[in-house]
Amino acid sequence: MSIEEPLEPVQLPLLVKEAVKREAERIGEEVKKAVEIASQIRKFLKERGLIYRTFEPKEALKSVAIDSDFTYPPLELVSGRLFIVIRAYVFGGGAYHKEKPRFLNEAFVKFLKDHWNERSSLILAKIFEKSLALQLLRDKENGLADFEVVLFDGEIIPRVISIRSQIEKELFEKLIDITSKILEYSERTGTPLIGVIKRVQGRSLEALTSIKQPFNDKAMGTLILEPGEYVIIGSIRDIIGKLGDRRPWLKKMVKKIPKASEILEILYKTFNPVLFELATKIEAYIPEKLRNEEYITYLISKIASITGQTGAPDPTDRADRLCSLRGDVIGAVHQGMIAEVSRVIGDFSLVFKALGLTNPEKIYPYEYPVWRRRPRTQRL
C-alpha cells in the first residue's frame, strides 16, 4: 500500500560528529588568536582617538530601504531559462512618497535563451534594483518624495566581473551608468546613500591599522567594538592607497565611477540587542556639503538607533522580507508562465513540453502542490 508522508530529516552520522570535534579544536585556536589581535587593534584605535561614540537621536531616521532577490541560477527549462527578480522598497521613520504606498514590491520576469548565462542575469537583477533607487531620488528632487537617506541591502557600487560576452558588456555598462547617476542625484538632493554589507569578505581595517587581520572586517568589528561605538575605516581612495594591489577590481570601479572614491567604509555597533553581538559594516556615500565629522556622527547614530536584532537597520530587514523569492513563488511563476503562453498560442501540450523543467528532479524545491509530499511505500 502506498501512503504519503513528509520527508524525514537525515540523521547526523557519527563520523560527522567526530569531524566536527576535530575541526572545533582547530577553530578554537584561530578564535583565540583573533581575540588577541582584536585587543591590539582596539588599543591602536583608542590611542589615536579613532573610536567614536553614537548618541540617542531625538527623531527617527526618514529612510527608504531598497532590496531585491532573484533566481540564481535562473530556472532551467527545456527551451531556455526563466529568470525572476523581485525588488522592494520600504519607507521608514516618517518618509513618504506622494504617489506611492509606504512599501511596495514589484516583479520582473524574463525568458532567457541559451546565449544568456547566469552572470548576465545577475547584472540584470542589479540594474532592476538600482533603477528603482534612481527613480526615487529623481522623485525626491521633483518634490514627490521625502526621505533623508537611501538604504541598500548590499554594496553601493557594483563589483567588477570579467566580461565574457557582448551581452555582459552592454548590461554592465548600463549598470555603471545607473550607479553614476545615483551618486549624482545623491549630491543634487543632499541624500546620503548607505550600503548595508551583510556578507563581509574584505579586510579593509588593515589599511587603517597596518595590523594583519585573521578574519574579515565584520568579525573583527564584532570583537573590537562595544555597543554605541563606531570606527571609520576610511574612504575607498584611502583603502586603494594602502591595499590597492589586493583590490584591483576596486581600482577599475573608481576609474569608471570617480565619485566612488569618496565612499566611506564604516563599522558600528548599536545599543539595541543584537544576536551574537554583531557589528555592522556599511558603505556610506555622503554628499560633499554634508561631509563633516559632526554630520557623520549624527547619521551613524540615527542608523544605529534603527538597527535591530539581525544587525541590520529595521527598514532593510523589512525590504528583505518583502522581496524574498521563496520556492513556492518560483513554482507559481513557472506554472503561470505555462498557462499564459498556452493561452497566447492555443496549444497547451506543446507549451508544456517546451517550458517544462529540463531536470524534473528539481521540481520538489519549488513546492508545486502535487509534489509537496513524496510517496513512501510501506508493508502492512
Rank of each mutant, 00 (worst) to 15 (best):
Tyr230Trp: 12
Val200Asp: 02
Asn117His: 07
Arg199Ile: 01
Asp69Ile: 02
Gly327Thr: 13
Arg138Gly: 12
Thr307Leu: 09
Gly327Val: 09
Lys252Thr: 06
Glu36Tyr: 03
Thr209Gly: 05
Leu175Ala: 06
Thr307Trp: 08
Lys353Ile: 07
Lys33Met: 10
Gly311Ala: 05
Leu61Ser: 02
Glu262Gly: 00
Lys212Ala: 06
Pro227Ser: 13
Lys169Arg: 14
Met1Gly: 09
Met337Lys: 11
Lys198Asp: 01
Arg164Pro: 06
Lys43Trp: 10
Ser79Gly: 01
Pro13Thr: 04
Thr310Val: 14
Pro9Met: 11
Lys126His: 05
Lys289Asp: 05
Arg379Glu: 07
Gln335Asn: 13
Ile161Leu: 07
Ser39Phe: 03
Leu122Cys: 10
Tyr285Phe: 12
Val150Asn: 04
Lys17Trp: 11
Ile239His: 08
Lys281Val: 01
Ile167Phe: 02
Ala284Gln: 04
Val109Asn: 03
Leu380Ser: 04
Tyr230Gln: 05
Phe147Gln: 04
Lys218Gly: 13
Lys269Cys: 01
Ile178Val: 15
Arg237Met: 11
Val31Trp: 03
Arg87Thr: 13
Asp245Lys: 11
Asp217Pro: 04
Lys33Asn: 03
Arg48Asn: 09
Lys198Glu: 09
Asp328Thr: 10
Val31Tyr: 03
Lys140Thr: 12
Pro287Phe: 13
Glu226Arg: 12
Glu18Ala: 05
Gln201Arg: 09
Ser210His: 08
Leu134Gly: 13
Leu205Trp: 14
Pro360Asn: 09
Lys174Val: 04
Val64Phe: 01
Ser131Asn: 05
Thr189Tyr: 09
Leu14Glu: 14
Glu367Tyr: 07
Leu183Val: 01
Glu47Thr: 14
Val329Lys: 02
Leu124Ala: 09
Leu137Ile: 06
Leu82Glu: 03
Phe103Ser: 02
Ala60Thr: 06
Tyr268Leu: 08
Arg159Gly: 12
Phe55Asp: 02
Ile194His: 03
Phe83Met: 02
Arg188Tyr: 04
Ile338Thr: 07
Tyr368Arg: 00
Ala60Lys: 12
Ile345Pro: 03
Ser204Gln: 06
Leu290Pro: 00
Ile239Gly: 04
Arg87Ala: 03
Ile86Gln: 10
Val150Phe: 00
Ile296Met: 13
Lys256Trp: 15
Glu18Lys: 14
Gly28Leu: 13
His97Val: 15
Arg42Asn: 05
Ala125Val: 13
Ile86Asp: 00
Pro73Trp: 10
Glu36Ser: 15
Lys259Arg: 13
Ile66Glu: 09
Glu173Cys: 05
Gly308Lys: 15
Ala60His: 08
Arg119Ala: 12
Phe276Leu: 07
Glu5Lys: 14
Leu144Lys: 15
Trp249Asn: 11
Arg203Asp: 06
Pro258Arg: 06
Leu15His: 06
Leu264Tyr: 14
Glu25Ser: 11
Ile266Asp: 00
Arg138Leu: 09
Glu76Lys: 12
Ser204Trp: 07
Lys21Gln: 02
Tyr72Ala: 10
Arg321Tyr: 15
Val329Trp: 04
Lys21Asn: 14
Gly244Val: 12
Ile286Leu: 07
Thr377Arg: 11
Val150Met: 00
Asp146Gln: 14
Ala284Trp: 05
Leu183Phe: 05
Leu278Val: 01
Val370Thr: 11
Leu357Asp: 07
Ser180Met: 12
Glu25His: 04
Leu137Asn: 05
Lys169Glu: 11
Gly327Gln: 04
Met253Cys: 11
Arg237Phe: 04
Phe55Tyr: 13
